[in-house]
Amino acid sequence: MQTQKLINDGNLAVDEMLAGILAAHPQHLWRPEHAPRAVIARHGPRPGKVALVIGGGSGHEPTFLGFVGKGLADAAAIGNVFASPPPQPAVDAALAANGGAGVLFMYGNYAGDVMNFDMAAELLEMEGIEARTVLTTDDIASSPVREKRRGVAGNVFIFKAAGAAADLMLPLDEVERIARHANARTFTMGVALSSCSLPQTRRPSFDLPPGEMEIGMGIHGEPGVRRGPLRPADEVTDEIMDALLAEMGASRGDRVAVLVNSLGATPLMELYILHARVAARLAQAGLSVHKVLVGPYCTSLDMAGASITLMHLDDELTRLIDHPCDCAMFRQG
C-alpha cells in the first residue's frame, strides 16, 4: 500500500520544493540562473569572507536549505532525496559565494557526498580558489571511531559555529579549526519508531514492525545498534542520554547546548516530553544548559522518531553559537 503525500510527481518533488522555498524566502535566498541546485544567501557572502558551503541530499529539511543565510552558511548544494548533490552544484554554490578568502565545504560523512564534494574542491582548485572540507561526524551510534561516524542533527550546532566564525571574517585556517573543534565536541543519538517513504515510491523504505523501535538508526534508514519493543519516553531518553554522557565525558559545572530533534513525523508534544527527561538528566549530571533547540531541525522525510544532540561548550563555542544569524528557517539575535 502506498503512503499518501501532497506532491505532484515524485520525480519533480525536489525541484518543486526549491521553487516554493525560493518564492517564500526571497529576502534570504537566491539561485543562479544556470545552477538550479545551488542556493545562495542573499546577504551572507561578501569580499574577504570565507565562503561556507554546506550541502547534501534532500529530505532532511530544514537541513540544509534552511541554514543558508547571514551568519550561517553562505550557500548550499542540493541533491535528490537522500542522495548526494553532483559536483557541479557544489562548484556553482562555491563560485556564487566566493569572497576571495577561500571556501570551506561542510557536510555529513557519507561516501557519495565525500566523493562528489572532493571532486568539486578539485575543480575549484583548478580555478585558483582554495577549498577545504570538514566532515560532520556526530552520530555516536554509527561507529566507535569518530572519523567513521555519520553526520546527523548535530550539523545544526556545528554549522552554526563555523558560520559564525566565517561571519566574523576570520581567515580560512581559523574557520576550519573552529569547524573541526565544534564537530569534535558534538554528540548525537536517535531512535526510529517507523519508516519513512520516498516521494518516488511512496512505500516504506525499510521494515520496522508496529510496536518496535530501533535505537541508533540513521537518517536514511541505516541500521542502528538495537531493535526491540517500544518503551516509555523516559526509558528511551535514559538509554540515549547514558550513551551521550559517557561519550562526552563532561565534568560537573560544564556547559552544554541541547537539541531534541524530530525526524519528521514526531510532534512537538512528544519532543518536549523527551526534553523534560533530558533536562532532568543534565541537572543530575551537574551540567549547565546554555541553549536548547526543540523541533524538526534535521528530518528524515516522514519518519517517526527523534534524536538528541549535546554540544559540549567552551567559551569559544558558546560565543559562536550565540552569534546572530538570519536564515530562511533559523534565526537568532
Rank of each mutant, 00 (worst) to 15 (best):
P89V: 03
P89F: 02
P89L: 03
P89R: 01
P89D: 07
A90G: 11
V91E: 10
V91S: 07
D92C: 12
D92I: 12
D92T: 13
L95Y: 13
L95K: 15
L95A: 14
L95E: 15
A96W: 15
A97N: 09
N98K: 12
N98R: 12
N98L: 12
N98W: 13
G100A: 10
A101D: 06
A101Y: 06
A101M: 08
L104V: 02
L104Y: 02
L104I: 04
F105W: 10
M106W: 07
M106S: 05
N109H: 03
Y110S: 07
A111G: 09
A111N: 08
G112A: 06
G112M: 07
D113F: 08
M115C: 10
F117I: 03
F117N: 09
D118Y: 12
D118T: 15
M119W: 11
A120Q: 03
A120F: 02
E122V: 14
E122W: 13
L123M: 15
L123Q: 15
M126S: 14
E127A: 14
E127Y: 13
G128Q: 08
G128H: 10
I129C: 08
I129S: 11
I129M: 12
I129W: 11
A131D: 01
A131W: 05
A131M: 08
R132T: 05
V134L: 00
V134D: 01
V134N: 06
I140E: 10
I140V: 13
I140R: 11
A141N: 02
S142G: 00
S142K: 06
S142Y: 03
S143C: 10
P144I: 11
P144E: 11
V145D: 13
V145Y: 12
V145I: 14
K148A: 15
K148E: 15
K148T: 13
R149Q: 03
R149G: 04
R150E: 00
G151Q: 00
V152T: 09
V152G: 00
V152H: 06
V152A: 08
A153W: 06
G154K: 09
G154M: 10
G154L: 11
N155T: 07
N155G: 03
F157Q: 01
F157I: 03
F157H: 00
I158N: 08
I158D: 05
I158T: 12
I158P: 05
F159C: 11
F159R: 11
K160P: 01
K160G: 01
A162G: 02
G163L: 05
A164H: 00
A166W: 04
D167S: 09
D167H: 07
L168V: 12
M169V: 13
L170Y: 02
L170E: 04
P171T: 05
L172P: 00
L172V: 04
L172A: 03
D173E: 15
D173Q: 14
D173P: 12
D173Y: 12
E174C: 05
V175Q: 01
V175E: 09
R177A: 05
A179P: 04
A179N: 06
R180E: 04
R180T: 05
N183H: 03
N183W: 01
N183E: 02
A184K: 03
R185I: 05
R185M: 07
T186F: 10
T186R: 08
F187E: 00
F187K: 08
T188F: 15
T188R: 13
M189K: 04
V191F: 11
A192F: 12
A192S: 15
S194E: 09
S195T: 02
S195C: 04
